[in-house]
Design a protein around this nucleic acid. Structure first.
Lengths: 153, 153
DNA sequence: CTTGAGCCTGTACCGCCTACAGACCTTAGG
DNA sequence: CCTAAGGTCTGTAGGCGGTACAGGCTCAAG
């Protein structure tokens, strides 16, 4: 055994971190913002976690992996904790999030297209003309107003 | 004319904001972090911008729209400012960024697939069983270690 | 006894802004 | 001339989602 500190069947912070793959400090952070409950403490003041905490933090981590914001995670947890009369609410939350994800994908694909097209026009030679710079410098596609638009009340 | 304040042919912060679509406060922020140069001031202490500032900030905004980080923007600007002997360096930067964008898309598509599949299994009825919750609670796919892995090292 | 690991707390920092407080200046209207 | 409205200035706080470090305990092993 390399493990120090006797523990009365309780998991310390590092154990919880290892069990869930969560960063050590993040556990404390989640406690501070109320995503994880403040666990009981053992006599020395150490946090004392159990399997329920492992399950909850794993839940949180999986939700985060799927891109749910902490606010969304909080909502999910509230629905789970609240006896969960309704799968429908959870589903709505997940569908909203799915919509967000799809929008982000669409945004990135637009960016990808512009970027790929631009890069493809690069000569690759060491000359002062640069397609990328030109594309960025060209006053096209951006949504700016003309300067001093005249009497605009 | 609705515009207050006489200006000796100089653009004030709000003018620059309007001309570029940039947020007013962000201009000050970009100056603070060195992405925009500190402009000359007129007698009253107001920042005094010109067309060159409009061009530069537009450049920055377009790069940001394409998802370049401010650090990357700084590099692009340095290459532009440095006489630009080499389009190759700019191209490399843009290609790297394109790679990043593609990876982010791939990540999001994986998330989308899981989310869509999970949501599709929802009953939609007001019942305690919920495919989303089950999926999040199931101790599958995440990269955690077993608790107390015994003598390790 | 000393060393080292692990834990505790609080706080600062990261990127990228955004917003507000409190002061000053300018201009138009009465 | 005075006032009100709006622009500008500065510094600083907040927000997301953490991450990291300093300074101080406790604990177990050598």
């Amino acid at each position: 055994m390399t493990r120090p500190h006797k523990r009365g069947n309780c998991l310390h912070r590092a154990d919880l971190a290892r069990a869930t793959g969560c960063n050590l400090e993040t556990i404390r952070y989640y406690e501070k913002i109320g995503v994880m409950p403040a666990p009981p403490r053992s006599a020395n003041g150490y946090r004392c976690y159990d399997e329920a905490h492992v399950a909850r933090l794993s839940f949180v981590m999986r939700a985060r992996d799927l891109g749910f914001s902490l606010e969304e995670v909080r909502s999910l947890l509230a629905l789970v904790d609240g006896g969960m009369q309704s799968c429908a609410e959870v589903e709505a939350l997940a569908r909203d999030h799915l919509e967000d994800v799809r929008e982000r994908i669409a945004d990135l694909r637009r960016i990808e297209a512009v970027l790929a097209e631009t890069v493809s026009r690069c000569s690759g030679r060491d000359v002062p003309e640069c397609a990328v710079i030109d594309a960025l410098a060209a006053d096209s596609t951006r949504n700016a107003q003309p300067i001093r638009p005249g009497p605009k009340k």
